[in-house]
Design a protein around this nucleic acid. Structure first.
Length: 213
DNA sequence: GTACTGATTTTCT
DNA sequence: GAAAATCAGTACC
């Protein structure tokens, strides 16, 4: 039931949609934490908002490697966020950003790591889900079809292919400054663990340059 | 319920 | 030096 590496070697949008309903598993020792992916964002290689857009650096080198591997990056001085490396139609790499999970297994461990018992607050956000599953920068570059970090395929989350498509909401991405209008965010309709209902970031963007120097 | 702010550090357009 | 694919807490309606 583990997704084969070939799954990730496809268009980034298709991968972002296909990962909804799949399970992210961190199994190490006797502590296993699992969450169903309920919210993703696509970052195609040529997207100005993609971390790989300006070329390869030390921090993003995994994004230029083979599909099906985890890319971890640190944001805002305190949070780890996780990408999955994909392929694209042009044979270049893209990334799927994991934004939210529905806790499935190891809830007590997640509650301890997150410092809260509220189920809604365990994995409903990119920084929260990595903390809940104990995923940090040491997982940067690991494969997702073997080892402690894996993604397994959908079970019976969707009744059929047609139902599946109707359960996916497509909207704009969160928290980015560039290419805000691109509808590259996907989530499962009605799922309470989705990080936000609205598509646009809640924080205002400065519109006409600096105003108070 | 919405709106704003501070925390904190890695990275380099 | 400034920006960053965020979160939690506070204030106010």
């Amino acid at each position: 039931m583990i997704l084969p590496s070939s799954f990730y070697d496809q268009d980034t949008i298709a991968t972002a949609r296909g990962l909804l309903g799949c399970s992210l598993v961190h199994a190490e020792g006797n502590e296993t934490t699992t969450g169903m992916i309920v919210e993703t964002e696509a970052y195609p290689r040529r997207d100005p908002a993609a971390h790989s857009f300006h070329g390869r650096t030390d921090a993003n080198s995994v994004l230029f490697g083979p599909p099906g591997h985890a890319h971890l990056f640190f944001v805002y001085g305190m949070h780890w966020c996780m990408n999955v490396v994909t392929g694209t139609d042009e044979g270049e790499r893209g990334a799927v950003f994991l934004r939210a999970l529905e806790p499935v297994k190891g809830v007590p461990v997640m509650q301890e790591r997150r410092g809260t018992h509220e189920l809604r607050l365990l994995c409903s956000g990119p920084g929260r889900l990595t903390q809940a599953l104990g995923i940090t920068g040491e997982f940067n570059g690991v494969p997702l079809n073997s080892g402690p970090l894996r993604i397994s395929s959908r079970r019976s989350v969707f009744g059929s292919h047609t139902v599946e498509e109707s359960m996916i909401v497509q909207t704009t991405r969160v928290g980015i400054a560039k290419a805000r209008e691109q509808p590259y965010r996907f989530y499962l309709k009605g799922n309470p663990h989705v990080s936000r209902k609205a598509g646009l970031a809640h924080r205002k963007i400065s519109e006409n340059g600096p105003e108070g120097i």
